[in-house]
Simulated scan of single mutants.
Amino acid sequence: MISRVDCTDKAKELIETLKTKHGDLMFYQAGGCCEGTQPQCFKKGEYYLRYKDVCIGTIEDCEFWVDKDLFEYWKHAHFELDVIDAIGAGGFSLEVPLGKTFKVNYRVFSQEEIDQLEEVKINL
């Protein structure tokens, strides 16, 4: 099966740092303006999922959720979580106090990959 989401080594290192400090984590990407355009990292359970939000997979044992409308737009794309040394538009994500911002690099799946994609989980 083909994963819909993975991360760079730099993102893995930051996730481990954040897990050591905060415990279990989750990611959420909305797709709206400002901080909604970048993935947000929260302590697991501290972001309330909305009806039909979609979990596209896990990164380092952390669920990666996206808004249902964003999923419809990007369901044929692979998400690669990365990190930049800057403070992004939002201030709610756990990496911000470290002067970092998570970002996603996208690429479109090939038809062969689409035929082998992992199932998603939908919040009902």
Rank of each mutant, 00 (worst) to 15 (best):
V83N: 04
E80M: 13
Q29W: 03
T58K: 13
L98R: 03
C34T: 12
E119P: 10
D6A: 11
L14K: 01
L98P: 08
G23T: 06
K10D: 10
E60R: 04
K100I: 01
Y51W: 10
P97E: 06
I59F: 09
P39A: 09
I56Y: 05
K44H: 11
Y28M: 03
H78M: 01
I2W: 09
K10L: 11
I84C: 10
A11N: 08
Y48I: 07
R50G: 15
F109E: 06
E119I: 07
M1E: 08
K12I: 10
G45W: 00
Q38S: 15
D61A: 12
C62F: 03
K103I: 15
E35M: 06
T20G: 08
E35P: 07
C33M: 10
H76G: 10
E80N: 09
D24Q: 13
K100H: 08
T37V: 10
V5Y: 02
C62D: 05
V96C: 04
R107A: 09
G23A: 07
T17K: 12
L49N: 06
V108W: 05
C55L: 02
D6Y: 05
G36M: 03
W74V: 12
D24M: 10
F71L: 09
L117C: 12
L98V: 04
V120F: 09
Y47C: 07
T17L: 07
E80P: 00
Y51N: 15
P97D: 08
F109P: 06
T101D: 06
Q116D: 14
R50F: 09
I87P: 00
I122H: 08
K19Y: 09
W65L: 04
G31R: 00
L94V: 03
F102K: 02
C33A: 12
A86K: 04
E35C: 12
T8I: 08
E95A: 09
Y51A: 09
F64E: 00
M1D: 00
R4Y: 10
E118I: 13
H22P: 04
D69N: 12
L70R: 11
I15L: 11
E46N: 15
C33G: 15
H78D: 02
A30Y: 13
L14Q: 03
K19N: 01
H22V: 04
E113R: 03
K103N: 14
F42K: 03
K75L: 02
K12P: 00
M1A: 13
E119Q: 15
T17I: 12
D82K: 04
Q111H: 13
D82Q: 05
L49H: 06
V120Y: 10
I87D: 05
V96H: 04
T37K: 05
P97S: 10
T17A: 07
D6M: 01
F109I: 07
F109N: 06
T58G: 12
A89Q: 11
D6K: 08
C33F: 15
I114S: 11
K19V: 06
M1C: 12
E80F: 01
D69S: 10
R107C: 10
A11H: 03
I114C: 15
G90L: 09
K75H: 14
G31F: 01
L25P: 02
C41T: 02
D115E: 15
D115M: 14
Q29F: 05
G57A: 09
